[in-house]
Design a binder for these strands. Structure first.
Length: 219
DNA sequence: CGGCCGATCAGCT
DNA sequence: GCTGATCGGCCGA
């Protein structure tokens, strides 16, 4: 098992996260979300779908109108903080806090293309053996709840610092970025309650990417 | 305290 | 496309 980052990939640092959520939502696509097991085995995927949550003015955001409860508190922390919440009685969703300290804005990680540790992801999602057979590789991390299940992310990780945490972080290739990937922009999923904010185009995904969330198919 | 509901998913029609 | 699962968080009384 390898505990360090593979040569050529660098962990994102504070300044990488200190930007507005619309910018970061696009910048995170193509970066790699990494989760290590207690033994140091790397489980990771390339981020292929994100959503921006714009804070106090955004009716779809948990921090709408400055709501500041124990659950949402990590959104008020430094850029690079993880905000993980539990929803629908059974799923977790992970966000990356950005902006400035005290400004509760974040980016939701909606889908990954599995990279390292796909076998472990498969066991966590579907168990071993027959139950896992025949399942689509593209469905492993194609949704925010699936990402958290495959990478063993839950509310115990809400509030951790992604720039220093030993077992949860985001990496980027150390080499110069190639030509920018083509992104498709659409409304956010599951926020129909948010009135005018429901229709805002605040979701991005990689064009032609099979590993995107269910609600994300189509143009 | 009680009640409502969700930044979802899987399975079925 | 539709619906049930399942429970912590949140708000109002």
């Amino acid at each position: 098992m390898r505990a360090g980052a593979p040569r050529g990939w660098r962990r994102l640092r504070r300044s990488d996260f200190a930007t507005d959520p619309v910018t970061l939502a696009q910048a995170l696509i193509g970066r790699r979300l990494v989760r290590l097991t207690p033994g140091g085995t790397r489980v990771s995927g390339v981020i292929v779908e994100t959503e921006a949550y714009l804070g106090v003015r955004d009716a779809a955001a948990h921090s709408y109108r400055g709501r500041r409860t124990k659950r949402v508190e990590p959104m008020y922390g430094p850029p690079g903080t993880a905000y993980v919440y539990f929803t629908y009685g059974m799923h977790h969703c992970m966000n990356v806090v950005c902006g400035e300290v005290g400004e509760p804005v974040a980016v939701l990680l909606r889908a990954l293309r599995p990279d390292e540790g796909a076998g472990l992801m498969r066991r966590r999602r579907w168990g071993g053996g027959a139950a896992s057979a025949g399942r689509s590789w593209a469905a492993l991390c194609s949704g925010p709840g699936r990402v958290c299940e495959a990478l063993a992310i839950d509310t115990r990780l809400s509030g951790v610092d992604l720039t220093t945490h030993p077992r949860l972080f985001i990496e980027r290739p150390g080499t110069i970025d190639k030509a920018p990937a083509r992104l498709i922009r659409s409304p956010r999923i599951g926020v129909g309650y948010a009135g005018a904010w429901a229709g805002r185009l605040l979701r991005w995904r990689l064009a032609g990417e099979p590993s995107v969330s269910r609600g994300a198919s189509g143009p």
